[in-house]
């Protein structure tokens, strides 16, 4: 597969503080690459180095097969789109005018109405950005990043601070971009977002890569056991419960079994309830997430 970005032993120092301690990553064409970590892990530093907003202290970067030394060259900038963590728009310009202004920065550009259509903002084209909602503003920021029809898009925590509905619409949009063949480099501290969108992820903490892989493989490897929650009446005694499994515990009015083999355990529960004539209510399956992966890898919660 074609490599879009190759980073080798990338380091970034802020004074004596080492924000990135030798990062190695590869991003392939057409994938959504997730860069995950808690706040202060070095995600934005990494992203801004790739965008040309920060100078690396050491290491090698190749983008589109060309080595990036010093500044990111204009011809590379023509091929990338950027959504910064916080986007301020130029004052006193309407939505379509902002896009028009940005078309003047690039050689090859999309038609403005197409860009607006892509982010579903056609109706707002004559509005000022200050009159848009948070989600609409973020979609506008994405539209700006798409105006040069880039091959590679950097998204820095694109859904932070948005309501669930807006978040959902941004996710749809990112998926649509992927289906159009764009390569996307995304940073986030939302595991749910990474799990839903990313083809591959890199988890970093304290400036170091702690694991890399597809979300499924990581969960399988580090997610730990699944959980099955259920309630039944009449309430069984502890002894009866222990008869079902050793890994069972009672939490308030329901019970939780941790297991590696969900199908087998589910069958056991059904047989066990029939045997004791319990009626089962509220059976839930809780599968491990990337959140658990992070917890298991670092011993800390992601948003601590």
């Amino acid at each position: 597969m074609e490599k879009i970005i190759t980073v080798k032993n990338l380091k970034k120092m802020y004074g004596s503080f080492e924000a990135l301690k030798g990062i190695d990553i590869e991003v392939y064409k057409g994938e959504i690459f997730g860069f995950l970590g808690p706040n202060g892990a070095g995600k934005t530093s990494m992203l801004e180095i790739l965008e040309g907003l920060r100078r690396p202290s050491d290491g090698e970067i190749h983008m589109f097969g060309k080595e990036v030394q010093g500044d990111v060259l204009p011809e590379l900038k023509e091929r990338i789109g950027v959504v910064l963590q916080q986007t301020s728009f130029l004052d006193h310009l309407k939505v379509k005018e902002i896009l028009e202004l940005f078309t003047s920065f690039f050689k090859k550009t999309l038609v403005i109405s197409d860009a607006l259509k892509m982010v579903d903002l056609e109706e707002k084209s004559n509005d000022y950005p200050e009159n848009l909602s948070g989600g609409q503003r973020q979609r506008l920021a994405i539209a700006i990043s798409l105006i040069n029809d880039p091959d590679l898009i950097f998204l820095d925590e694109p859904t932070t601070g948005l309501d669930p509905q807006s978040r959902e619409s941004i996710w749809d949009l990112i998926e649509k971009l992927k289906s159009n063949g764009k390569t996307i480099f995304l940073t986030t501290h939302y595991m749910e977002e990474a799990q839903r969108l990313c083809d591959r992820i890199t988890i970093i903490d304290h400036g170091e890569v702690i694991e890399m892989g597809t979300p499924e493989k990581l969960i399988m490897k580090y997610g730990g056991e699944s959980k099955i929650d259920f309630a039944c009446s009449p309430t069984p005694s502890i002894e009866v419960l222990k008869g079902l499994s050793e890994n069972i515990q009672r939490i308030d009015d329901h019970c939780r079994i941790t297991t590696k083999n969900i199908t087998k355990t589910l069958e056991d529960i059904v047989l066990w309830s029939k045997k004791y004539n319990f009626s089962l209510t509220n059976v839930f399956l809780i599968e491990p997430t990337l959140e658990d992966v992070f917890l298991n890898l670092t011993g800390r919660e992601l948003r601590e």
Partner: peptide, 17 residues
């Protein structure tokens, strides 16, 4: 200076202009 403080310059920095 306003463009600097509200990151407009940063946004323009990542374009080829």
């Amino acid at each position: 200076s306003k463009y600097r403080s509200n990151d407009v310059l940063k946004r323009i920095r990542v374009t080829p202009i």
